[in-house]
Nucleic acid binder design. Structure first.
Length: 847
RNA sequence: GCCCGGGUGGUGGAAUGGCAGACACAAGGGACUUAAAAUCCCUUGGGGAGAAAUCCCCGUGCGGGUUCGACCCCCGCCCCGGGCACCA
């Protein structure tokens, strides 16, 4: 709807001679006029930027590459049908501000954008409508690109990447071959998560525990365990390095902690218990081998392979019943909510290797088959779970560790000192652990062991819209394709439905799957994460047709520890960010990249809640559509508002009132250079003068420049904008506004509201584009006030103020306070015992 | 239960040992206008005294502590958000 200016409405009223009441009624339904002509300004500058290619990053060797480089990256989006939401834009705005700032600081900035475009939604859409995912994806990408470009982001569009492009897929498959050659890709028959609703298997990382049981991360569908033959990537081979190298990274501590938890390293020992009256041995894994003397029984998981063979005839019925019941239980029943532990003795005894004692063997489902050896030694006195179990079944509890001071609690799980432990007596926990392991190792009864919770990455999916594996099968032997056979592209299909038997949709491509020599293609495709595992490397050299990236480009852009700033949501903590680190390390070992980590510095933007303080959701109807906001208020205002809302990393609610405030701020900037006439035309403001700024204005400029610069370095955009507001308020208050001052403002504003900044810059007759202008500087002495107001406290209570020369030293200040005319009133005539002076801040008199 | 964040006006937030509440939103008042919108200016943490300039008291989740001085550091608790959770 076109916006009508007030003046037109006014004349309309006069000319048409409408009655006042009619006029009012019409008026209320009319949109208010735009506070400044952003709809005209914004497209103009977007075109200018595109035409001058001013955001193009210089490749090493090209002119411009001699500047210091900086790589500023966003987590590229999956182009969904719903389009971008304001949450995406928050992170993208933040990185764009930094990219623009760095460019103005004279750096060669790599700031690219692309599309993580393989994925299930397009495929499901295809199942419903028959539209090929390629078509849907292309449409969605166009829409995303349009939305992103409407925001005026300074991406180097010549580097745009689409993970579904065969030119890109080729290299994703190429990297897979590298993993394959290094024996990091293998096929295994294992119990895996299968999601019937999605018709595919999922990686551990893609399954979330919920109150309704395990669910898929995408779509929240129930998932179940199924033994299936699948491709796995050996991420566990890198567990230790993935853990250790977290220390190299400037990432949020919470996120590093999540990765540490996921990797789940524990150090302990495997201890072997011999079965009494048999040659069988049962290894258990424990992190507390020092408590071995306190072991009073042993527990096997119900799925433990030896349960059946070790069960005595008298216990057979009870054990079989228990195992059957356990397997029928959901994971939920077996874990969280099941406070009560259950189990059955199997009628066998094992020998404790340290003291030869015979202890009973139980089966209980509080022991997990999937972790360790599926068997534990139970030390009820020093483990809470064992304690609960022993209490429930009246099993003996034997204390062998005491705290260094105080009495021994019933169940003491911390480090302490051993007693009643034979050769371990008197040893503190760390020493006792080492001693018992040495003792066991010497006798072949156990060994030191490090374990990780991290499992290998299930890498195949029964989907169509993904990268085909560059692998063929000859019988049950797999073989890699040759490099020159890449890319292996997807066959055209009309029917994308997976079959109930779990056969992937590619199985329907009869001519594609069968090779002339009788070999068969792999029918699974790669998960969506494959493309995002290395896109940041492709951005370094996106048009290379002979290599995924050239060594020179990688070395140049990834110097200094990889991507310099990576911004995205925290939901990728153990998915994308772990997988990408893993691939990067493999590439590092292959000498294809120059640093062991891909993302040196990572920042998570906080989510933006709806105006009602709830998570934005279509079903609640509190989603803010950026297209509408831009239409109504302009992209600059949206950028400014998203940054002004609060600290980047914090969760914060949307506010349409606050949004209007940002528009008002930008309109004030606009009105520094333009004034509206009676008839609604914008004309150059007569307040603009070709004069040197007054000292007050010089000071205001210096302050703003210092504050904005400092805040940009720290990504504190909200306070930077507030400093700009202070400057604008100052300039608005001036009757004569020096052009140079407003020009400096336009440059400070350029990273935040680039369109308006360009317009103001141009209207002031400044040369070139504000976007690539040199960042303003300031003289230090302009920050210094001649005199400063000092707060005077007596016994830490504020009593008064005094104005002092700002260069006054401590002694001088003290002297001046002591002779201040009001000193007696302030101190109440008491004798001053001590004076604390903080120059420029306070004076505190202690009486 | 464990591990990370966080708790400041009516609201979003600012201040990381030195004048709590920058900047903005909302609210109220004023100017301009026939009127409205827009714009500009003023007031605005709470309570109290005063005709007034002004002055006093309270105040950063709660309770202690360190310090001349604490939103900030330390100890103990409460609440909110996120993550992990029978991983031996």
């Amino acid at each position: 709807m076109p916006r009508l200016r007030v003046a037109i409405q006014r004349t309309g009223w006069v000319r048409l001679g409408m009655e006042v009441g009619v006029y009012y009624r019409g008026f209320e339904t009319m949109p208010t006029r735009a506070p400044y002509p952003f709809a005209e300004i914004e497209p103009r500058w977007q075109t200018a930027w595109a035409e001058t290619r001013c955001f193009r990053a210089a490749q090493p060797g090209e002119p411009g590459s001699e500047k210091p480089k900086v790589y500023i990256l966003d987590m590229f989006p999956y182009p969904s049908a719903a389009g971008l939401h304001v949450g995406h834009l928050e992170g993208y705005t933040a990185t764009d501000i930094v990219a623009r700032y760095r460019r103005m600081r004279g750096m060669n900035v790599l700031h690219p954008m692309g599309w993580d475009a393989f994925g299930l939604p397009a495929e499901q859409h295809a199942m419903q409508t028959g539209t090929h995912p390629r078509v849907t994806t292309a449409k969605n990408i166009d829409n995303f690109r349009r939305q992103i470009q409407a925001m005026g982001f300074s991406y180097d569009w010549e580097r745009e990447i689409d993970t579904t492009d065969p030119k890109y897929v080729r290299w994703t498959q190429w990297i897979f071959l590298k993993l394959y050659e290094k024996d990091l890709a293998y096929v295994a028959e294992a119990p895996v998560w299968y999601c019937p609703a999605l018709g595919t298997v999922l990686a551990n990382e893609e399954v979330l525990p919920t109150n309704e049981g395990p669910r898929s991360e995408r779509g929240n569908h129930p998932v179940e365990r199924r033994p299936m033959r699948q491709w796995m990537l050996k991420i566990t081979a890198y567990a230790e390095r993935l853990l250790q190298d977290l220390d190299l990274l400037e990432w949020p501590e919470s996120l590093k902690e999540m990765q540490r938890n996921w990797i789940g390293k524990s150090e302990g020992a495997e201890v072997v218990f011999a079965v009494d009256g048999s040659k069988e041995k049962i290894p258990v894994y424990t992190t507390r081998p020092d408590t071995l003397f306190g072991a009073t029984y042993l527990v096997l998981a119900p799925e433990h392979p030896r349960v059946a063979s070790l069960t005595s005839p008298s216990q057979k019925t009870a054990v079989e019943k228990y195992v059957r019941e356990s397997s029928a239980k959901s994971d939920l029943e077996r874990t969280e909510l099941a406070k009560k532990k259950t189990g059955v003795p199997i009628g066998a005894m094992v020998v404790n290797p340290v003291n030869g004692e015979k202890i009973p063997v139980w089966v209980a489902d509080y022991v997990l088959a999937s972790y360790g050896t599926g068997a534990v030694m139970s030390v009820p006195a020093h483990d809470e779970r064992d304690f609960a179990f022993a209490k429930a079944y009246g099993l003996p509890i034997r204390k062998v560790i005491r705290p260094e001071s105080g009495s021994v609690p019933d169940c003491f799980t911390e480090d302490g000192v051993n007693f009643d432990s034979g050769f371990l007596d008197g040893l503190k926990t760390p020493k006792a652990k080492a001693a018992v392991i040495d003792w066991l190792e010497k006798r072949g009864l156990g060994r030191r062991q490090v374990r990780y919770k991290l499992r290998d990455w299930l890498f195949s999916r029964q989907r169509y819209w993904g990268e085909p594996f560059p692998v063929v099968w000859k019988g049950d032997q797999h073989q890699p394709l040759l490099e020159k056979e890449l890319p292996l592209t997807l066959p055209e299909l009309a029917d994308f439905q997976p079959t109930a038997s779990g056969e992937p949709p590619l199985g329907k491509a009869e001519t594609w799957k069968k090779l002339p020599d009788g070999r068969m293609r792999e029918l699974n495709t790669m998960p969506q994460w494959a493309g995002s595992c290395w896109y940041y490397l492709r951005f370094c050299d996106p048009h290379n047709d002979s290599l995924p990236w050239s060594a020179a480009a990688e070395k140049y852009w990834m110097a200094g520890g990889g991507v310099d700033l990576y911004v995205g949501g925290a939901e990728h903590a153990v998915l994308h960010l772990l997988y990408a680190r893993f691939w990067h390390k493999v590439l590092f070992d292959l000498k294809l990249v120059s640093h062991p980590e891909p993302f040196r510095r990572l920042v998570n933007q906080g989510i933006i809640l709806g105006e009602d303080n709830r998570k934005m959701s279509k079903s609640i109807g509190n989603v803010v559509n950026p297209d509408e906001v831009i239409r109504e208020h302009g992209a600059d205002a949206l950028r400014v508002f998203e940054m002004f809302l609060g600290p980047l990393e914090q969760m914060k609610p949307w506010s349409s009132k606050g949004m209007e405030g940002s528009v008002r701020f930008l309109a004030r900037v606009w009105r520094l250079v333009c004034e509206e006439t009676e008839s609604g035309e914008w004309i150059p403001s007569p307040t603009l003068v070709d004069e040197a700024p007054e000292p007050e204005t010089v000071k205001a400029l210096a302050k703003a420049t210092a504050k904005v610069t400092e805040d940009l370095e720290k990504l504190q955009f909200n306070t930077a904008i507030s400093a700009l507001m202070v400057l604008v308020n100052h300039l608005t208050g001036l009757e004569r506004r020096p052009k140079a001052a407003v020009a400096q403002l336009s440059k400070l504003l350029a990273p935040f509201a680039p369109h308006l900044a360009e317009e103001v810059h141009a209207r002031l007759g400044e040369k070139g584009l504000a976007s690539v202008a040199a960042w303003p500087t300031f003289r230090k002495e302009d920050l210094e006030e001649e005199s400063v107001e000092l707060a005077v406290q007596v016994n830490s209570k504020l009593k008064g103020r005094m104005i002092l020369p700002s260069k006054a030293g401590k002694e001088e200040i003290e002297k001046m306070v002591r002779v201040h005319p009001e000193i007696r009133t302030w101190t109440g005539g008491k004798i001053v015992q001590k004076v604390i002076v903080v120059p420029g801040r306070i004076v505190n008199l202690v009486t």
